[in-house]
Every structure is written in C-alpha cells, then in structure tokens.
Amino acid sequence: MKILAVVGSNSDASINRQLVTYATTLFENAEVEIVDMNDFEMPIYKHQREVESGIPQQAQDFASKIDNADVLLIALSEHNGTYSTAFKNVFDWTSRIKPRTVWNEVPMLLMATAPGGRGGLGVLEAAEKRFPSHGGNIVDTFTLPFFNDNFDKSAQKISNEEKDSELREKIQKISAIESILEK
C-alpha cells in the first residue's frame, strides 16, 4: 500500500506534520511518503498567470504523487477557520490540471490538530464540504484538540489513550477499504 501523507502547512514546526507522521506509523507494510507545502511553493494562483505561463511543474508533481497513492492522509492546519494559504495555493493550482480532479477519488483520511479545544474542526468542516467536489473520497476524519496536552512530543505519539484508540480505529477502517480495493 502506498500512502501519501500531506502536511497542509508550511510551518517548519508544524504540529499537523507531527500528527500525520505518527498516523503513518499505524499502517502495516506500507510505503509512505510525507510531503508538505514547502515542497510545492508556487506563485499565488491567478488566472492571467495561468494563461500566460501555464500550470507550474510543482502542481503537476503534486498531482502525480496523488495519482500514485493508494491512500491519502491529509493533516490540515487551520488558519482563521480554513486552510493555510500555502495549502490553498497548491489546491488551486492542482485544480486547474485537466481532465483530472484534484484528489482523483483516492481514499483519504482527513486530520487536523490545534492547540485549542476545537482541534482544527473548522478546517475539517471546510474540507469536508469542498473536497468531494474535487474528487475527494473522504473515508473518515480525525481531530486532536489540545495538541500540547494530548501529544507526547518526545515519544512522537498521541498520549491521550481515547484519542489514540480513535485514530487507530480510523486507520483500520481506511486500511480495510484499501484491502478490498486491491482484490
């Protein structure tokens, strides 16, 4: 199974990177690639720019990674209730590649974490509404509130047993779907 873990942040100290990296360790016999938005930095999307210069290679590369994945784990950072600008720009450019859809119906687990009590719930709600219109096959979502209290940074894992168990169940769910699709 090929897993593409997308860090929807361009922060060098991203807590969503820590969450998605931990989630990848819960899969058995998986080939994992972790990417963040710093790998796909492009000019801010503008239609005129697209007409004049075409779609940047970074967007093509991002789409290729999606197309070669069996499962997507996407951990979105929340900026003012929605995606980070870095993520939104990659999303916008990738949406311009025709005739494909952004997510190409690859099964995905959407995740978010934040220092506060909502745990990135706003960005997950935004993604749940938007992604299906762009080929998003959302199997489940997971949020980890109060990151600093619920994630052991030295052990690089969720320390809250209830939330850890919840994530493990969701990983099993997406793994089972992928197993069925492989047959």
Rank of each mutant, 00 (worst) to 15 (best):
F27I: 12
E28A: 13
L19P: 00
I171E: 01
V123W: 03
A13W: 08
S64A: 14
E162P: 06
I66H: 03
A127L: 07
T82F: 11
G119R: 01
I74F: 08
I74P: 01
I171Q: 00
T85R: 14
R96M: 11
I171P: 00
I138M: 07
L76A: 12
I55S: 03
M111V: 07
N68I: 06
P43Y: 10
Q60E: 15
A23H: 02
V106L: 07
T82V: 14
D92F: 09
G8R: 03
I44M: 15
Y22I: 01
I171Y: 02
V51N: 12
Y83N: 06
K88T: 10
E169M: 13
E41C: 13
Q60W: 15
P43F: 12
G117S: 14
E50I: 06
K173E: 08
S133L: 15
F40E: 02
S9F: 03
K157Q: 09
P115C: 03
N68W: 09
A30H: 04
V139N: 04
N160M: 06
I180C: 10
F151E: 00
K170W: 03
Q48K: 15
F27A: 06
I74M: 09
A155G: 06
F40R: 03
D152A: 04
F147W: 03
E78H: 07
L4W: 05
I177L: 15
A112E: 04
Q58S: 14
G136F: 02
D12T: 12
D70T: 08
E50Q: 15
R168V: 06
A127F: 07
G122T: 09
T25Q: 10
T24M: 07
I3S: 03
K46C: 12
